[in-house]
């Protein structure tokens, strides 16, 4: 079996200390292979976002280790961590986090700007990313002037612009109506299927979860179930039989 692109090994995460100490994750182990689409599902407060932040190397576990392609992230320098988040990962959040004052194009090219890519190339790649999401005509608009669905597509363009191998999406459809949400889901799963981008989606939404290869159920900081589509298919087949 190839080395998983991301792995959590018996990860604990606690917030606060003493009497106010809260254990958000209590021993989570998970391996994610390159090209998988994984849904992390659970009730509010169960620790989904906390797990995603650890996998995305935005936070460090209290105990246990997060591995990036087999290397313990605790051993990586902050420069390597920054570079990884900048060019290996792409982020889509429930809230858009678009800079209201800047143009759509400038918002999309933000990761490239952080990476130090010269302006001309930045704009070329930004336009290409916008083209994939059919938003070229909005490039010069201010980000605030777009509809919710358009904004989330801009956010996806921003996540894509630096050619990531993993996209993290925390409740990407949480802010959208069902129809627009479905469009965004289609785009994300399409990217997973056609470009082999690993997709890690945090969601409440069973419909979205069901469209992923794999569903990880989390409750009170522990993984309670980890199902792959083939296993589900098998289970369903059993029920049917």
């Amino acid at each position: 079996m190839p080395v998983p692109i991301l792995a959590a090994c018996d990860v604990h995460k606690s917030y606060g200390r003493g009497a106010t100490r809260f254990d958000a994750l209590r021993g989570v182990s998970l391996e994610i292979a390159q090209g998988e689409s994984v849904a992390i599902i659970g009730k509010s407060g169960s620790g989904k976002s906390t797990l995603m932040h650890l996998l995305a190397l935005l936070d460090k576990p209290t105990e246990g280790a997060v591995e990036l392609s087999g290397h313990d992230a605790a051993g990586l320098s902050s420069a390597v961590l920054n570079r990884t988040r900048n060019s290996t990962f792409g982020f889509v959040f429930q809230q858009f986090f678009l800079n209201p004052g800047s143009s759509v194009l400038d918002n999309v090219t933000l990761p490239l700007r952080i990476a130090g890519v010269p302006r001309a190339e930045r704009n070329r790649r930004g336009m290409a990313a916008l083209a994939q999401l059919e938003l070229e005509s909005k490039a010069k608009n201010r980000a605030t002037d777009l509809s919710g669905g358009q904004k989330q597509r801009v956010v996806i363009a921003r996540a894509l612009v630096n050619d990531p191998s993993v996209i993290f999406a925390d409740e990407p459809t949480g802010n959208l109506d069902t129809a627009t949400g479905a469009v965004v889901e289609d785009i994300l799963l399409e990217l997973n299927r056609t470009r082999g981008i690993t997709l890690i989606v945090v969601t409440h939404d069973e419909d979205l979860a069901n469209r992923c290869d794999r569903r990880v159920y989390i409750r009170d900081g522990l993984i309670v179930d980890d199902l792959t589509s083939s296993a589900i298919a098998a289970a369903n087949a059993e029920v049917a039989a």
Binding site: A56, L58, S78, A79, L81, N82, R83, T84, R85, N86, S87, F91, F97, N99, L110, P111, I114, A115
Partner: peptide, 16 residues
Amino acid sequence: TREIGLMKAMGMPGGS
């Protein structure tokens, strides 16, 4: 705050 957080999440070093 948000904008800075986002940029740091996207790999902007504290120095920048």
